[in-house]
Computed example of a mutant assay.
Amino acid sequence: MKLTFQQIVDLASSGLQAAGIDAKSAYETAQFLALAEADGLASHGLARVAQYAGHAKSGRIALKASPRVQMFKSAAALVDARDGLAFPALRFATDLSVNLAANFGIGIVAVTNSHHFGVAGHYTEAAARAGYISLLFGNTPAAMPMAGGSKAIFGTNPLAAAFPVLNSNPLVIDMSLSAVARGKLLLAAKKGEAIPAGWALTADGKPTTDPQAGLQGLMVPLGGDKGALLALVIELLVVGLSGSQFSYEADSFFNAKGNRPRLGQLLITIDPGLSGKGIFQSRMNNFLAQVAQDRAVRLPGQRRFNLRAAAFLVGTEVPDALLEEIQAGIQQSWKI
């Protein structure tokens, strides 16, 4: 069935509120889930409603948490998500980092006691649309081994970067450091589909095309050992600057029951005027002109912007089974 953006927001918000999450957090989270659906990133859209609802019902998130600043240090701040859903905290942290960058040239905001934060590029995109360079790093529950290892020690640890482009969409680079985002396994499992070889390993380290076995096992690092080492860099940066839990201390997001993950994120927002007035945009325009000479090149982020524009016009197709899952959860208040 095709739904409008607002219908997706309302459905997701109702689903989250049915699990006891306060209306403000539910609505802000629903906006990001709807944006993921519009961008063609269904693994981070409505498919997450049941997951978050399960966490709410089993006490893995605080139902009425409101983010607050825990510490300031000139151009840096620490935001406490207070065990709530991550989306309100990351939205608050993004705005704060932009304000710091406007005043100091750079804004660094760490988020602690956080949860799954969805599409990393949505936050960096917002900062780039305000005219700033933006970087975001986060750690996630352990799913990948250290280089040479066979035990999950850190998460898929996503990163995103966005660069403003004058009078156009920003360039948005958004990736996890596993071969694919773990949410793609969740989506495949919900659809009863196999996954390609090379995405995941079983718990005993064997290649698998079964998404459920992959969710219970290990993700393959992007680019082998190099991806694993980049994930380590993010792990140490995020945990060191936020004081959050390490990936191996957080129970899987894919289980309703478990501990409060208390993971972290790190935002770095930069005023591009450091090199002089207009220089950044001038150099960016030169780069884009050079890239445009190769017609095969697709600029990062452009596919999602095209899909978003179409979704706002004609709606987004949502699987009937997913709609039924959320509607049943609302009717039954997500009984577990």
Rank of each mutant, 00 (worst) to 15 (best):
L187V: 07
I21V: 11
F104Q: 11
S150D: 11
R308D: 02
V119E: 09
T202K: 12
R283L: 08
N259S: 11
F246N: 15
A19K: 09
V220F: 04
A53L: 06
T124F: 06
L266C: 07
T269R: 14
A65Y: 00
P211E: 06
Q212F: 01
S43H: 13
A296C: 03
G315I: 01
P88I: 05
A152D: 07
L90W: 01
L218W: 01
V291R: 13
Q281R: 13
Y132W: 14
L185V: 08
G45W: 01
L186A: 15
G258I: 02
Y52S: 04
A53Y: 04
A38S: 15
A296N: 11
T94S: 08
G273L: 13
E193M: 07
D294L: 10
L90R: 03
T112F: 02
W334F: 05
A47F: 00
N259D: 11
S25N: 12
L322V: 01
F32P: 07
L166N: 13
S252Q: 02
L185A: 11
G105K: 14
V180S: 13
G40F: 00
L313Y: 00
L41R: 15
A53D: 07
G121Y: 00
G329I: 05
Q327T: 03
E325L: 12
G240K: 04
Y27V: 06
L236N: 08
V318F: 01
F117I: 05
T124R: 13
A200G: 09
Q7H: 04
Q6F: 00
A160T: 09
T29F: 04
N286I: 09
A289C: 06
A34M: 01
V109E: 02
A77L: 13
A89Q: 12
R91A: 10
P207A: 06
L90M: 12
E325V: 05
N157Y: 02
F163Y: 14
I234S: 12
A147F: 00
D210Q: 10
V79H: 08
S150M: 06
Q302S: 13
D320E: 10
P207Q: 10
G155Q: 10
L78I: 13
D251V: 04
A128Y: 05
S275Y: 03
K190F: 01
L3Q: 04
F163R: 10
A203W: 00
S74F: 00
N167D: 15
V49F: 07
I270L: 15
M219K: 08
T269P: 14
L35N: 02
K257E: 14
A130T: 05
F154N: 15
R60Q: 09
A86V: 03
L215E: 06
G243T: 06
A161V: 14
F32D: 14
K277T: 11
R308G: 03
